[in-house]
Design a protein around this nucleic acid. Sequence first.
RNA 1: GCCAAGGUGGCAGAGUCCGGUCUAACGCAGCGGCCUGCAGAGCCGCCCAUCGCCGGUUCAAAUCCGGCCCUUGGCUCCA
Length: 500
Amino acid sequence: MALCVTDTLTGEKRPFEPRDPGNVLLYYCGLTVSDPPHLGHARSWVHVDVMARWLSHLGYEVRHVENFTDVNEKIVARIGEDDLGGSESEVARTYIAHTLSAMRGLNLRRATVYPRVSEHVPEVIELIEALIEGGYAYEAGGSVYFDVTAFEGYGKLSNQQVGEIEAQGDPEERREKRHPADFALWKAGGVSPDAIAEHRHAGVEGSEDTAERSAEGRIWDSPWGEGRPGWHIECSAMSMAHLGETIDIHVGGRDLVFPHHENEIAQSEAASGTEFARYWLHADLFETGEEKMSSSLGNFIAVEEAISEYGTNVLRTFLTAGAYNSTQTYSEDAIAEAEERFSHLSRAHGRAIEAVDGPDARTKVADPELRKAAENARADFTAALNDDFDTREGQAALLALAGAINRHLDGRDEYDYRGLRRAIEGFEDFGEGVLGLEFGTSGAVEGDVSIADDLVETVLDARERAREAGEYDRADALREELRAIGIEIEDTADGTEYRY
RNA sequence: GCCAAGGUGGCAGAGUCCGGUCUAACGCAGCGGCCUGCAGAGCCGCCCAUCGCCGGUUCAAAUCCGGCCCUUGGCUCCA
């Protein structure tokens, strides 16, 4: 069964075929680095990460490009805030570092390249020149605008008519533009104080320094005079620079469909004369209560905060608990459920490992049900991910495998080594390799030699003596004491285990 | 207003493209049982939905068609 994906452009789910068999060119619209990344971003990243992992699993060579928008009015508006730096590029660098660190914390595989706008201004200018030459863009007052009436397919991604967009246009916004839907490719001059004031965080609106900080955005020379690149053109320029004229998969948030992605198509296809992206995938949004989580609404939970609060595995389990193209709502309950799911998987994996490594695993013992379950899990997981990267169904396949492992191990004293081996491979190939979970990290602890472990062992010994003496109150009190400091213990047939 | 996504059990979330096997998956929560000194973990079983509303097509619709209601996103800050 082959991979099928839902393409926003056609609205259809169809088989995925890269232009060059064996190679996938993937572009993801990355962040404007003007705020700390939040869980909504994390959700998109994790899903793109799973996509890239799955494509690799299928045998494709994936070239994955993810940009950073480091030239933006919102970044300029942060200059001078706590520890962010004193220039646009310093603020951007600070947030890029935060972002990359958050990404590592989420166990994301690194993209092939993380291009930045500030490093691609020559390509941006070159692309704009080509658009002017082709009659798709015009210069006005030192700025350059894309002429939407010149590009026949404008509106095809978001199903909008140029005429309708015109009707909605605010006449005040029009200024030098010939058509209200025309958008800036190049903006003359620096960042206006108004734009900065608009994006400044509440509480730091020291009016006296606004003017002073207003001119601090970076400015580049261009054939049209000094200015700054527009927002949309950067993605076209960077994607062409790193992936060529036609990419296979373009991913981004649903909130970017219009105007950003619509404009990307227009610019890129007008300039190259060929298809820009073969498949447009859109990640649905992450909500808190009734509205989407977003930096500008201020209702976000920072990724770094969430990682320290919940841990990478729980977060990834939570974020892949729905398909990328469905919305997800944040709640403590949902996180708690993810925690349960992950623990369940992790315990089953841990039990299987212990059984396989122990003396009771016999090759000659065969449990057809376990072996069948391991086979089914592989088939089901594969079918799930091939169906538009359905991570939720993928989790379900692993959960079923966990049940099979537990059933096999319960009440049996000789284990099916080969069957367990296959089951463990399923966990490792899919749970770890594709979903990016790490099962080893919170299982039962054994053989560790730290002092803390020695101390816990000492307490457990004392509790064991109390139990043998029938002093259950004392034993339970010790258990509670340990729980109070975050150590859960569990009595098993092989003795007492603990984890924290 | 226009464009888009969505409305399924207490929660969460598949199924809708290719109508019947959906008496609606998997999970969480809840209940009962096994196991256990107890707890936890695990296993087994159970409870809870006629699938937003109305109408139509069909032998048959959560699934197709039409209308309506509601939610969210976008309409140049946004993953």
